[in-house]
Nucleic acid binder design. Structure first.
Lengths: 165, 165
DNA sequence: CAAAATACGTTGCGAGCCGCAACTAATATC
DNA sequence: GATATTAGTTGCGGCTCGCAACGTATTTTG
């Protein structure tokens, strides 16, 4: 029963696989052709506007780990394509409510259904336990990386991260 | 027995989790502080030099999906830090053999063991089947994205990709 | 063998995305 | 009402990227 060794071996394979995936996605972003002419960042921005309803620039910035200046420029680019609109906020004259247009919704739905469909095809022959394991690992990797890089809100004022990121 | 619906639901969760993970990694790259002062790209470049032995600039470029000009600049940055060396290739006077220095090896081993250790900690309480599922899904996502983006070598001259990427 | 074509790597250039800082306008505080 | 704070925009410099032009070395061709 080589249990410990088995886990070490799996950890190596997880690292390799994650590493490869991230590398591929870096290219995908670089090429700026994520889907339907949107960059990956634009795609996430659109997603956030749709999911979080009318949204402030600052909310978009923190969701995408961007400076507000770039969040503003990102809104520019989406607005120029008619996917979102800048609407004056009713309760605060300084703020804007970023809203999605019907074109934005339908484009996002199209992208999302493509990608969910791809995930479905890739996962459909796996057992339920294997699929659940994959979902869980993806979440844990994301959370661990967020924490390692100090992105998380520091709700608890514990010791600083031990590593620079 | 809601089998189909279960798979659809899992596919959505896979998409969400992958999406989140990729977003976090995009930030991690942006901050240029992947590990020990190396950017993610530099880290992958170092890894390739170590794994593939003395290597040409062009090989590095294709491994990282980069133009050879940027691969050359990447070698510059690693050489400046004393992690790799440019050695004239014995068999071809035009080419260079990029070799890793002892400092490069030890830095990479340190980074790798940190990340493999993190993967181990994140995966150790999962069942074998769940871990295998995670490894398999990461690989499939990477391959699917490569193919969708037209990165793969087109060994088979089948029809072109149906989507722009 | 000489000339042309090809291959390897470097550098120059412009484009895009990034964060920081300065700015305008609106709101909150006293 | 004066001052401080907040939301968002714009200017700036930095970094990475791909493309194109270049120098050098090799391979191909006549």
């Amino acid at each position: 029963m080589p249990k410990i060794e088995q886990i070490d071996q799996d950890a190596e394979q997880l690292y390799e696989a994650l590493s490869h995936l991230v590398r591929v996605y870096q290219f995908r972003d670089r090429d700026r052709c994520c889907c339907e002419g949107l960059s990956v960042t634009q795609c996430y921005a659109l997603e956030h506007v749709i999911k979080a309803g009318p949204v402030r620039v600052q909310s978009l910035a923190s969701e995408l780990f961007l400076d507000k200046s770039n969040a503003s420029r990102l809104v520019d680019s989406l607005a120029k394509q008619g996917l979102v609109c800048r609407v004056p906020d009713a309760t605060d004259g300084r703020a804007l409510a970023i809203t999605v247009t019907p074109e934005g919704v339908s484009l996002y739905e199209s992208i999302r259904s493509d990608l969910v469909g791809e995930a479905r095809n890739l996962a459909c022959d796996l057992s339920k336990e294997a699929r659940d394991g994959a979902i869980e690992m993806l979440r844990r990797f994301a959370n661990a990386t967020e924490q390692r890089c100090g992105l998380k809100d520091f709700n608890d004022d514990e010791a600083l991260p031990t590593k620079c990121c």
